[in-house]
């Protein structure tokens, strides 16, 4: 973390002195996280491309106000998340839509699996799942769940960092992650049965 911070400080100083190559390095280092968040929150490809540029232009404008309380990448992640939130708010798209029926059906599926002590089938499905199926099932989750799953499993960020990006308390964050994984697992099980793989 300390090494990260000193690298961040050097880079930010260079950018503020007018070195555009230093900003290029920041973009290259953090674009993976930015693109991951945008792709999980936003569906339309054109909007994704516009927002990715908007995020870095905002980061460039605000760089002077960055206080090094977090990693630079986390700070840019926060800008990305908030930019996406504002965009979805304007479009009146909810980031999380938990309907009670959905919650009930997860429990039913889980009980069914447990009741039949059919967990071998369960793991068999998960082993057999192709990446595309998992990717498309992740795509069907609400934007917030998709984002949390990708920040935790793909970007391998800590709860603290995810909390800083999304402004969610750690307890809420873990709870959402549990629900997201459970919904994903049950959706995969449902699909497996439907398609009778």
């Amino acid at each position: 973390m300390r090494q990260d911070q000193s690298t961040d400080k050097k880079l930010v100083k260079k950018v503020l002195e007018g070195n555009s190559n230093a900003f290029k390095t920041i973009v290259v280092n953090t674009q993976g996280l930015v693109v991951q968040i945008i792709y999980k929150m936003i569906k339309n490809q054109e909007d994704r491309e516009d927002l990715a540029q908007e995020v870095f232009l905002k980061a460039y404008d605000k760089l002077g106000s960055f206080k090094f309380n977090s990693k630079l990448s986390t700070w840019i992640g926060t800008i990305t998340y908030n930019t996406c939130l504002n965009f979805l708010e304007k479009k009146k798209i909810l980031i999380l839509n938990i309907d009670e029926d959905g919650l009930e059906s997860w429990d039913l599926i889980d009980r069914k699996v447990l009741g039949n002590s059919n967990s071998q089938v369960d793991s068999h499905i998960l082993r057999k799942e192709k990446h595309q199926i998992i990717a498309s099932e992740i795509e069907n989750l609400p934007p917030l769940y998709k984002t949390l799953i990708s920040l935790y499993h793909n970007q391998e960020l800590s709860y603290k960092e995810i909390g800083e990006i999304t402004s969610l308390p750690e307890g809420t964050l873990k709870n959402y992650l549990y629900r997201a994984r459970k919904q994903l697992k049950n959706n995969l099980l449902g699909k497996y049965k439907r398609e009778d793989l």
Binding site: F23, V35, Y39, L126, E129, H131, N154
Partner: peptide
């Protein structure tokens, strides 16, 4: 296993050089 499968999904990428466009 689910976690391993999620990790193995390739990262999304934009179809252009983002840093070049931003600069």
């Amino acid at each position: 296993l689910l976690s391993t499968s999620i990790k193995s999904i390739p990262d999304p990428a934009l179809g252009f050089d983002l840093s070049k466009r931003v600069l």
